[in-house]
Write a protein that binds this DNA or RNA. Structure first.
Length: 300
DNA sequence: AGCCAGGCAAGTG
DNA sequence: CACTTGCATGGC
């Protein structure tokens, strides 16, 4: 096992790992109570994820543990994860410059003050697509719980530091599950959507990574071909996995924020409201959305 | 007990 | 196109 640390570049500070991985933007990280030695000098939790085989040098799923101490991130893995983590956690994003592009407003100012350091993820597309299909009419902790159940039931086990972790299932592994198998994991009516989406991607051998190279509009159209993916879920996947930072997913929380703080942006149709929000919040509108979402959920 | 949660698909007018 | 309805589950 290798260990190492990353110091955020001066122009990319600050960083808030907890806000970034527990805020509902990614469902891939779990608190890791097995990482005893990572708790030596701090009360902050350690986290663990399993990178999909498609994202690793080895071509196999790889475990990564992470803990923050000040501006430094400590990691444990089988090989050097510096570049992978800089990419996945967007550590090169210059948050000061990004937040300066947000329009002024009392709620926005409070949100940036309180939650500064939140970074959007660059997550793998398939797990993100499934997670946000599961997100419909669900609360953040239960969405996370479903992803853990999917990984532990259908994902490839990976040994690390004498413990067993599980990668998120591949399209092939999920396509092999029956709808009843998925309902047993308490996915409810989303079970059919997950089954259909995994099966389509597997049988047609669809390359999801093309959504990164498409324009935002094209990416959203591409993503909505999948069962259970409407405008809002497509916006989430575009933002959190396809690097389209202008996407503004308008969920019930953001809808309430817009109604109270930005009423002129609200329209009866989702697409018109989201378009108005993209236009108003600028090139990093997705980041603005993330700060407003966190502020709303924190009751600011 | 009822309402709501990071909505969506299918049906109708 | 706009609007309505059914859908699983669990916490408050």
């Amino acid at each position: 096992m290798k260990t190492g640390s990353i110091h955020c570049p001066a122009d990319a500070r600050p960083f808030n790992l907890r806000a970034s991985v527990e805020g509902g933007h990614t469902f891939r990280w779990q608190r890791d109570y097995g990482a005893g030695e990572m708790y030596d000098d701090t009360a902050l939790p350690a986290y663990v994820t399993v990178l999909p085989a498609t994202e690793t040098e080895s071509g196999s799923p790889e475990v990564v543990r992470l803990r923050q101490s000040g501006d430094r991130l400590y990691w444990q893995a089988e090989y050097d994860m510096t570049e992978v983590l800089i990419d996945h956690l967007r550590l090169d994003d210059e948050l000061d410059s990004i937040t300066k592009t947000f329009p002024d407003g009392p709620l926005m100012s409070r949100a940036v003050d309180e939650i500064m350091g939140l970074r959007l993820p660059n997550d793998p597309i398939f797990p993100t697509l499934i997670a946000f299909i599961c997100s419909s009419q669900m609360r953040v902790p239960r969405i996370h719980q479903m992803q853990v159940a999917l990984a532990e039931t259908f994902g490839t086990p990976v040994e690390f530091d004498e413990l067993t972790y599980h990668a998120f299932p591949t399209p092939s592994q999920l396509a092999a599950a029956s709808e009843d198998d998925l309902r047993a994991l308490k996915l409810g009516y989303r079970a059919r959507y997950v089954k259909d989406t995994a099966s389509l991607i597997h049988t047609e051998d669809i390359d999801l990574s093309q959504a990164i190279d498409l324009s935002y509009d094209e990416a959203v159209d591409f993503l909505q071909q999948f069962m259970g993916v409407g405008a809002k879920v497509a916006d989430c996947v575009a933002l959190y996995a396809c690097r389209h930072l202008e996407a503004v997913p308008v969920d019930t929380w953001i809808q309430k924020v817009l109604e109270s703080e930005y009423p002129s942006l609200v329209d009866s149709s989702y697409n018109e409201t989201a378009r108005a929000a993209r236009s108003h919040f600028g090139p990093y509108a997705g980041y603005a959305q993330a700060y407003l979402f966190a502020a709303a959920r924190d009751g600011l």
